[in-house]
Write a protein that binds this DNA or RNA. Structure first.
Length: 462
RNA sequence: GCUCUAUUCGUCUAGUGGCCUAGGACAUCGCCCUCUCACGGCGGAAACAGGGGUUCGAGUCCCCUAUGGAGUACCA
């Protein structure tokens, strides 16, 4: 049997991390077994579906590199097929028109709730012989007795009594089909072998199985993933920061880091934390998935992100960097190389690297006050002159020069390195000073040193 | 309310009846390295939700309670 999985989001909002995780697991399962991964947009709710959301989903999937083998399919383009199935159900007496008003249904619901019962349709219209020219919804005749066993690959056997289920609506009064009908038809038509989705759908599964059986369609395998909660254990929402995957891109996360983080949420392979894409594909297994919900922890994501920034090819990482390079300055790859270990995100890396470019630096007052004191004026002047005359501009030469000046004035390395750092970067933090100075370049270094010296001079006079 | 589902350090998890004095990772704390910030190295603190069973033996199996999550729509 060929493995066919699908990711079927409804375009009513952005693609969020929970959705990405189900997409990842489905994608992985198909890849691992040499099967197909299908993308299907469930847009039957025309009121709430938007093109912007469709774009966000497509964009997110592309950014993460979760390519589909088939699709995207749009349910709104398959209405003819759904109507055909609904007609068949009607003709076979497996579905019926219902003319109950929303008011009556609401009243019924309130009464049942008051009687501490589960709200459900009372089948009033089930026996009425109908004519399709009166406007009404169409309901599926759910079996009244027996039980449905959902053989879930993650949760195990989950048993539902048919007496708990009611006759669900498969077509609205305006004739459009509803979710439970469309998924069933699509999963059948698209020959989906494994339905991997969030466990918010677990309760729908027995209804879908009944529908599938009424249609004589095969029952796919099911795997329901637990939900992802926020840091506080509560349901993930806007409160928890980034909700859309594209926010993660903007915040400077690498796709591989996000995916690696997500795969370890509810799934594990012993104590292994780092997984390359190929390892994910090779080692992934539905049976190793945890059935309990997990809390999203940004700190760990940050750690993984830095890991990927540090270990990735600098040239590759540089392509994700949003920083304006200057032809007269170092390459972005060189900057990634020296900054990787002091940045958890690409955004942070870029923000801390402006001093490698441009004509002037922005001085951090606190750093200036602490390190650019009158006493350092003489050594720094000496250093400036020597650096200006350095014929071979490289880190080693710069390093030796700084040491020589420190020795000459009998001061500790830090006493000269920090003032130099503030002079060339504007602040007290940067990669090793020799490397930093090297990358900034001789001309700029000397210019900036002169300006810093002038600054000390002014302070001296005032 | 009802139905379904879950519960190991703060967080993600290992664990499938004796290997558990419960392991790893993130975060946290201390020390080392050091020109800054980091990275890195070493070390510490930190958990089987509670109660009953079953068993020679339970984190692991069963039941109850508590707590969390999901569903209960002419949403998906």
């Amino acid at each position: 049997m060929t493995i066919r999985t699908r990711f079927a989001p409804s375009p009513t909002g952005y693609l969020h991390v929970g959705g990405v995780r189900t997409a990842l697991f489905s994608w992985l399962y198909a890849r691992k077994h040499g099967g197909q991964f299908i993308l299907r947009i469930e847009d039957t709710d025309r009121e709430r579906s938007t093109q912007a959301s469709v774009n966000a989903i497509l964009e997110g999937m592309a950014w993460l590199g979760l390519q589909s083998d088939e699709g995207p399919f749009y349910q709104t383009q398959r209405f003819d097929r759904y109507h055909q199935v609904i007609e068949q159900l009607l003709a076979e007496g497996k579905a019926y028109y219902c003319y109950c008003s929303k008011e009556r249904l609401e009243k019924l619901r309130v009464m049942q709730l008051a009687a501490k019962q589960k709200p459900r349709y009372d089948e009033k219209c089930r026996k009425i012989t109908t004519s399709s020219d009166v406007k009404g919804v169409i309901r599926f005749k759910n079996p009244k007795v027996g039980q449905v066993v959902v053989k879930d690959l993650i949760k195990g056997n989950v048993i539902f009594n048919n007496s708990e289920l009611d006759d669900l609506i498969i077509a609205r009064a305006d004739g459009t089909p509803t979710y439970n009908l469309t998924v069933v038809v699509d999963d059948w038509d698209m020959r989906i072998s494994h339905v991997i989705r969030g466990d918010d759908h677990l309760n729908n599964t027995p209804r879908q199985i009944n529908l599938l059986q009424a249609l004589g369609a095969p029952i796919p395998q099911y795997a329901h993933l637990s939900m992802i909660n926020g840091d506080d254990g509560q349901r993930l929402s806007k409160r928890h920061g980034a909700v859309s995957v594209m926010n993660y891109k903007e915040e400077g996360y690498l796709p591989d880091a996000l995916l690696n983080y997500l795969i370890r949420l509810g799934w594990s392979h012993g104590d292994q934390e780092i997984f390359s894409r190929q390892e994910m594909i090779d080692l992934f297994d539905l049976t190793a998935i945890h059935s309990s919900p997990a809390a999203f922890n940004t700190d760990k994501l940050l750690w993984l992100n830095q890991h990927y920034i540090k270990t990735g090819k600098p040239e590759e990482i540089a392509t994700h960097l949003q920083l304006q390079a200057d032809p007269s300055g170092p390459s972005l790859a060189e900057i990634v190389k020296v900054q990787a270990e002091r940045a958890k995100t690409l955004k942070e890396l870029a923000e801390n690297s402006h001093y490698f470019f441009g004509e002037s630096v922005e001085f951090d007052n606190k750093a200036v006050r602490k390190h650019l004191k009158p006493a350092i004026h003489a050594p720094l002047t000496e250093l400036c002159e020597r650096l200006a005359q350095l014929s071979d501009w490289n880190a080693e030469g710069i390093h030796a020069t700084i040491h020589a000046v420190a020795e000459q004035y009998d001061i500790k390395l830090g006493k000269i390195a920090q003032p130099l750092r503030v002079a060339v970067t504007g602040g007290a933090v940067s990669p090793p000073i020799d490397v930093t100075t090297y990358l900034i370049g001789q001309t700029r270094t000397v210019e900036r040193l002169k300006r810093a010296l002038a600054l000390i001079g002014e302070k001296n006079e005032s």
